[in-house]
């Protein structure tokens, strides 16, 4: 049974239909990529799943309907979002940022353990733990955002464009960490414009175009498919 089951999810801003009914499944422990060009509705889909935007349709998470469940309760249920543009708390230190990730937990001992885990995942953050997050480089901020999301002990981690605006070396590093998080058994929904990168780490992928899912297949098949090659890989 899938961890996340999305059926006919629609979102509109005023009169504009950003998502025209999409279906999506993510199994426990799976890494799924959602690719598409600018304005295809990728971020809208993630925000709707996180409860930050109102949408219609059925969303079931771990067998439970998420209908009308507000954003802050979805986090408690184990759905964590790393927002587009990272959204670090600029005037808080790295460590304060990570602690904010554990805002809805009160098991102090386990939080300390998880903090240590995040620091092993991102040794760079351990070096900079007292530094203000706003003064970090883009890549480091992405690490803070991901580490912060991990502090909520998610079952499903949703990443919105983690490669955006980063140096190639840093992108590689971030994607290595995404693999590591996935290997720990966390299910991941990865939204990316960089289709090649995303499909290389994912096991399955969905292609979103104009608010609709036009293709869905195993990641290898998508990488090899003509349509994806033409549209996203420039081949």
């Amino acid at each position: 049974m899938s961890l996340l089951e999305v059926r006919d999810l629609k979102v509109s801003y005023g009169g504009i239909h950003a998502l025209k009914g999409i279906d999506l499944d993510i199994a426990q422990g799976e890494l799924v990529a959602l690719i598409g060009s600018n304005g295809a509705g990728k971020t809208t889909a993630l925000k709707a799943l996180a409860g930050l935007l109102p949408g219609t349709g059925q969303v079931h998470y771990a067998g439970q309907s998420l209908h009308n469940l507000p954003a802050h309760q979805r986090v408690r249920a184990g759905l964590a979002l790393v927002p587009e543009g990272r959204g670090v708390f600029a005037r808080m230190s790295v460590e304060e940022n990570l602690h904010m990730g554990a805002y809805c937990r009160d098991d102090k001992a386990a939080i300390v353990q998880d903090l240590a885990l995040v620091y092993t995942l991102f040794p760079r953050l351990a070096e900079r733990r007292a530094q203000l997050a706003g003064t970090l480089s883009g890549g480091e901020q992405q690490m803070v955002a991901m580490g912060r999301a991990m502090m909520s002990r998610p079952r499903l981690l949703m990443l919105d464009e983690p490669s955006m605006g980063l140096a190639p070396m840093m992108v590689e590093k971030i994607f290595t960490t995404i693999r590591e998080i996935s290997a720990q058994g966390v299910s991941i929904l990865l939204v990316e414009q960089n289709a090649k990168l995303a499909l290389e780490v994912a096991s399955r992928g969905y292609v979103l175009e104009g608010g609709k899912i036009t293709l869905s297949d195993g990641a290898d098949c998508l990488l090899g498919s003509d349509a994806v090659q033409r549209a996203y890989l420039g081949a």
Binding site: H72, V75, A80, G87, M92, M100
Partner: peptide, 24 residues
């Protein structure tokens, strides 16, 4: 306090704050 940290999180980034589980 917990409330104080939540206020500061909202001040810094409201979307991220609600993604932390804060009832903004």
């Amino acid at each position: 306090s917990r409330i104080g940290r939540a206020w500061m999180a909202i001040r810094e980034d409201e979307v991220a704050a609600s993604a932390m589980g804060i009832n903004t």
